[in-house]
Write a protein that binds this DNA or RNA. Sequence first.
DNA 1: CGGTTGGTTGATGCAAGTCAACTACGGTGG
DNA 2: CCACCGTAGTTGACTTGCATCAACCAACCG
Lengths: 215, 215
Amino acid sequence: MSCAPATLADFLPEIRDYATRQCFNRNETIFNQDDPSDYVYRILTGTVRLCRYMPDGRRYIVDFLLEGDLMGFVESPDMPATAEAVTDCLIQVYPRECFDQLARGNAAIRTQLLCHLSANLLTAQQHMFVLGCQRAKERVASFLLRLADREGLSCGDRLSLPMGRQDIADHLGLTIETTSRMISALRNEEAILIPNSQQIVLRDMGALRALAAEA
Amino acid sequence: MSCAPATLADFLPEIRDYATRQCFNRNETIFNQDDPSDYVYRILTGTVRLCRYMPDGRRYIVDFLLEGDLMGFVESPDMPATAEAVTDCLIQVYPRECFDQLARGNAAIRTQLLCHLSANLLTAQQHMFVLGCQRAKERVASFLLRLADREGLSCGDRLSLPMGRQDIADHLGLTIETTSRMISALRNEEAILIPNSQQIVLRDMGALRALAAEA
DNA sequence: CGGTTGGTTGATGCAAGTCAACTACGGTGG
DNA sequence: CCACCGTAGTTGACTTGCATCAACCAACCG
């Protein structure tokens, strides 16, 4: 059974009467790891990071969520990660119970839910390869390409990086200095241009793809 | 909604008449990345590795599957990874269409399917932390603890390692030499005993947990 | 202006990778 | 029974890629 063209988000308007909208400022926490899973979320505007914090303070950024993305659909009594606003965000919050009830009566939603989780799992596996096998410059190239793909960008387009260098580093398993150096290296090799630190022009996606070398 | 005590595997007997059993020798391929997702699998005996191969030959081992584990439930037209027998295996193979039909008529199965995918996703996120943040010795400790947990072992028990050092290395994003050195280091620190290279006695799980430092 | 925050760059150190030798074990056949 | 071989694991010597530590720069703002 393959995924239908509809997406999970298409069904959420059906329960919009039960939803609330919330604003979060940059770096504000949206929910905490181990909070009860009582809500599901949709990002209306802004960028969010999903983090896991370790007892010793180390942080790993599981993923970034962009405008339109959903979170909170993992089947677990507690949230497995903390969500924080990377930029100011507007977020639609749906009561979980309400969504579950909708899903119980609607097979198409359940199918989409499976697709959503499967897609997340595949993304995670892809990223495990990045962390397990790639070197620093390849990781940065993979990261830029993945963001570009999600935004539907192609060669010559301008990619905006709402997250800071430290966030990118924590997502790629690198330090902020190495991340910065590798971005500079890609500029020196003329694979990208850096009009300013928040934006990157994808000058040579072929070169980036050659580095990322993902199937 | 939390996961019921039943598991996905409990429902498979209902379609056992449509299943076949297949034997695979050590290192034999069970299915290939990009094969159509026409079957779901249950490991009856033996150990399996799920791998992703890259164009340049690098290999990443997504996970190991043990006796009783299931695979092939990701919602995708093609298999996202290759499955290979780590040891000689006996595997029950169910036609996917048959399972899907069962799931369509049974809400409990669908719930379990969501739990199964969610659990896989959480495992993947946990492992991303291992790859992104931990150093070599911590990774090996995490690996041993996870295997021990899955086998339900505790302090003093003997853990068997059906997979070779190279497999462990490819799962942890290390080289075979570093993996071997770290295992030796854990022996020298008296956290483990190594009666032979395929078995490990968990002498001091506290020390291992302190290294893994996972929540 | 000076202070603050986020990013870049340089110098140095170390953890893990690489290359290579050696050991242990399990067959297989003389 | 031992001699030989092939495979898998361990250990040592050396190299290197990234982390660390530290200085510097640019943008922004009171």
